[in-house]
Write a protein that binds this DNA or RNA. Structure first.
Lengths: 189, 189
DNA sequence: TTATAGTGGAACATCCATGTTCCATAAGGG
DNA sequence: CCCTTATGGAACATGGATGTTCCACTATAA
């Protein structure tokens, strides 16, 4: 490697741009590079200096998104407790991702690791979690893991939008999400 | 009025463009007018003849969407039976809207009647339905109507996407949606 | 068949996001 | 303090979507 290192200033600027991009693109996926630069308190020239093409920025967003997603999953300790409890923990962790939720939801192809996402597949950790839930009786056995993944994400997105649109507190929004998600996956009597 | 009438041919062409626009924009909200024209089997020139500007087409889509939405709500007979049953019927009807679901979900401002949507409000029919469900014990009283509306739409969207992404049948997708939605709104024991 | 309504393609102008270059200036490390 | 690094603005080029005009072609009705 020639220059694996980057100045502290550059690292900070780069991160500011990525953060701003997540916020802005999360609200409006077709936002302009100019808007992103403004949100990052940076000139459009500077943005191009770090990410020559729009696709370069998207690639960086993909990496950042994957990192945050994995960190959240780690924090949720998916292999502990019942399936339903693990899913609720994952829901809590993911909810903290904020605008990244909207971005991933509206531009799924940005993340979709080549790993899973192969037509009908899904996150392996989630898949195992659901399977466990099917057996320990905390997750409706009629619901496949892929569908539960869809429900989880759509509920998270709904909750985040709800939080943005109403006067509700973050805590209350999360409570609603977890409550409806819990009911959705619960085995039917 | 001078010419409230339009030739049969023109009416058909106009409708073909609107239908195509719903399909195409439902899949990709930033689709080109050229793509829409192609999908409608119509020249781009013709499209401009009916809708001089893009905004004119969007206005027409708004009207068409509202019409279909209202028709679906009528078919669901929201004032009959328990709140939960009425909501399930509405879910069935809305699911039939197909690509319109995606379009409304990704471009909510297209529909948002000035009527409701006023920060924290929602469809009055739905609101009444939920209130009824709160009292007849079929809908979790902790869930406000606005949140239930969010859940309904996000579930519908999830189900429609799921249908598009997997090899599942339309009927099976709807079954999953109704099943999870029913659990989500059910009063907790 | 003739006249009219409806259509589609080609060519053109325009706008806007994108990407590039250049330069003056500000910031930070030595 | 000085020199390198980093930045932001202005100006310009480019490409794609949009909107317009014009004309030839087709179908339909009289």
């Amino acid at each position: 490697m020639t220059d694996t290192q980057e100045s502290g200033t550059r690292t900070r600027t780069r991160q500011a741009i990525i953060d701003a991009a997540i916020e802005v693109l999360g609200q409006n996926p077709s936002a302009t590079l100019g808007e992103i630069a403004t949100a990052a308190n940076v000139g459009r020239t500077t943005l191009h200096r770090y990410f020559p093409e729009r696709s370069d920025l998207l690639t960086a967003l993909s990496a950042e998104g994957t990192t945050r997603l994995n960190r959240a999953a780690d924090n949720a300790r998916l292999d502990e407790g019942t399936g339903a409890d693990a899913l609720r923990r994952l829901c809590h962790e993911y909810f903290e991702l904020g605008s990244l939720l909207s971005l991933i939801f509206s531009e799924p192809q940005l993340i979709d690791d080549a790993d899973w996402s192969e037509q009908g597949a899904c996150d392996p950790g989630l898949s195992a979690l659901v399977e466990r839930g099917h057996h320990d009786g905390t997750i409706d056995p009629e619901l496949p893991a892929t569908w539960i993944q869809s429900v989880l994400w759509s509920q998270l997105y709904a909750g985040w939008s709800y939080l943005a649109d109403t006067r509700i507190s973050r805590h209350e929004a999360l409570r609603l999400v977890v409550r409806t998600l819990s009911g959705a996956i619960a085995p039917k009597s």
